[in-house]
Write a protein that binds this DNA or RNA. Structure first.
Lengths: 337, 337
DNA sequence: CTGAAAGCGCTAACAT
DNA sequence: ATGTTAGCGCTTTCAG
């Protein structure tokens, strides 16, 4: 293997200096057309490929931004990522991904790795486990743009893009009430995450508004997964005062709930079931799953837009914005009583 | 914002030189325990975070490896990624992801970006569009490890990890035959991708072995998606000689097929349907989807193992291996006649 | 065991 | 419009 070509090789070939080559390649500074063309031609001839590391080391900008999500397997996050990439496409910024797999430890590691890789900014949605946010605070301390989306944290004074989760919870509950359900349970995570708390508040508020009682035994705090959904449903259906509808913390959990209900012959919409996130599978299961759409694409493009704005400012945090999106009810068979 | 601490700051603080600091931090070279401890303590005190860029520029190793997949939304690829990360965890290598979204252009860009970022190696599964593979050849030319998984290409003389796709196609077909289906159609991609061709060959071979005719009109070449599945199914079911079972190129396509069949009241297993990949939703749709499991986790860990081996050699390609995994039939309701 | 010094590939003043 | 030169932060000989 021959050594990689550098701008020095190009310079030597053309009997000019590296600065000229650098300028020609970057395209901006004053350069004669002939020189530029010659440089570009020689670069191609020598199969030159720039070393971004060196450039980044010198200029302090990598043009890479790190995105940390709990998991790329959720359609919701995958869609956000896609829209972030889309929104950043023309700016020259590239995205690299890091999954926390819902573990704080991984998340801390992710922040560290990305920071050490000198990314120009980070966008993140926190893991369920995350309570202490000092690892994120470190990003702010370095004065690098940090944008939180969906799963955010109040202690961090950074821009956020979220859903109106109170309204989301309210909407889901009101929809079930409108469909004639009167005894509505809620299966959610035990972790103190703002968005999940907000949804729960929305749920309670909707019940109150409709003069329905808030029953402690109808609120199940556990995990969010297919398994947890099954578990929550079976726990609820063994109650003396069985619910006639169940709101699940996300669509995966809702799927578990439905599985369980089918097994015990209480197939929705006999018992109403609604989830959150409008996952890819949700329209295709039987019965198809009603859910709250969280506008992942809008979320992603808002993040991108926000980042591009922040990167312009000398102090990225001089003007901290919060974008709040409106949830959208998607009615399907699982709640059509 | 204060400047970032460097090893110079630590050196100055302790009245030693940067080389000593560097050695202490890297942990290997001969260093007295006292010095090492002092350095580490000071590093923590000054909130030091290494600049990997500088280190990589000097040492030529970034300890980052790039993974290119068509899409992270497919459970299959997400699982592979997860297992790659798992397998690399203890080695110090980190993974960064790049999605091609099934576009060659994105794929070429991805290779370029990763190469410019000086990754230490690349693992990739090709987009459906990819025919010319010169962008991948460039990686080999730079003598950097390239490992192809699942969607591979014969022109590239690099290590691969794949499923025995001929057997996968055969297995799916034979299963349908065993279930009593006799008129089996195949909906696949129009793109000339090895794995899909191999499955088709397996399908044909199974038909031959069982003395069943291979009907041209029963092989639909289109795309792979829910939409394409619907399309393929409706095309097939309008035939004079309607099939009594359909093999779909992947589970998404199979899902589309099932949707369509349900609409025209030919709900599986009345018409048998089987897919490939055992996606996350496949057990949960109605009827649950029979499929061929492609062992994504094994695939990922084999990739990781292979990479670790290659990186040791002075010439990574001196010993090109091909791991071939055995497909696994997952029988569910959609084919239980 | 530690120090001195060169240099990875590139950018960006500052000259000319 | 082009050349000169000094680093970016780190690793790594080579000396001692």
């Amino acid at each position: 293997m021959k050594k990689k070509t550098t701008i020095y090789d190009i310079a030597k070939e053309l009997n000019i200096t590296v600065s000229t080559v650098s300028r020609a390649l970057s395209g901006f500074s004053a350069i004669s057309d002939t020189t530029r063309e010659a440089v570009i031609a020689t670069a191609k001839k020598l199969n030159y490929s720039p070393n971004r590391l060196a450039s980044a080391l010198k200029s302090g900008k990598t043009y890479i931004i790190g995105v940390i999500v709990p998991s790329v397997q959720a359609h919701f996050f995958a869609s956000i990522i896609h829209s972030i990439e889309e929104g950043l496409k023309d700016s020259g910024y590239r995205v690299i991904l890091y999954q926390s797999n819902e573990s704080v430890e991984n998340e801390i590691n992710g922040v560290k790795t990305l920071l050490e890789a000198q990314v120009d900014g980070i966008m993140a949605s926190m893991s369920l486990e995350t309570e202490d946010v000092s690892h994120f605070a470190e990003i702010v301390k370095q004065n690098k743009p940090l944008i939180l989306f969906d799963r955010v944290h109040n202690d961090l004074k950074v821009p956020t893009v979220t859903l109106d989760d109170f309204r989301a919870g309210y909407l889901a509950t009101q929809h079930l009430i409108d469909q004639g359900y009167k005894n509505i349970a809620f299966v959610t995570t035990i972790h103190q995450i703002k968005i999940f708390n907000d949804r729960l508040k929305g749920y309670k508020s909707a019940l109150e508004t409709n003069n329905l009682p808030i029953l402690k035994e109808h609120i199940i705090f556990g995990g969010l997964s297919i398994k947890d959904g099954r578990f929550g449903a079976s726990k609820l259906m063994r109650l003396e005062n069985k619910p006639d509808a169940i709101i699940a913390g996300d669509d995966f959990t809702a799927l578990g709930v439905i599985k369980k209900l089918k097994e015990i012959n209480e197939t929705p919409p006999q018992i109403g079931v609604i989830g959150f996130a409008n996952e890819a599978f949700s329209p295709y299961i039987t019965p198809s799953l009603s859910t709250i759409d969280q506008h992942p694409n809008q979320m992603g493009s808002e993040c991108a837009k926000m980042f591009l704005k922040m990167i312009q400012l000398k102090n990225p945090y001089q003007d901290v914005n919060h974008v709040i999106l409106d949830p959208l009810l998607v009615e399907r068979q699982s709640t059509i009583n």
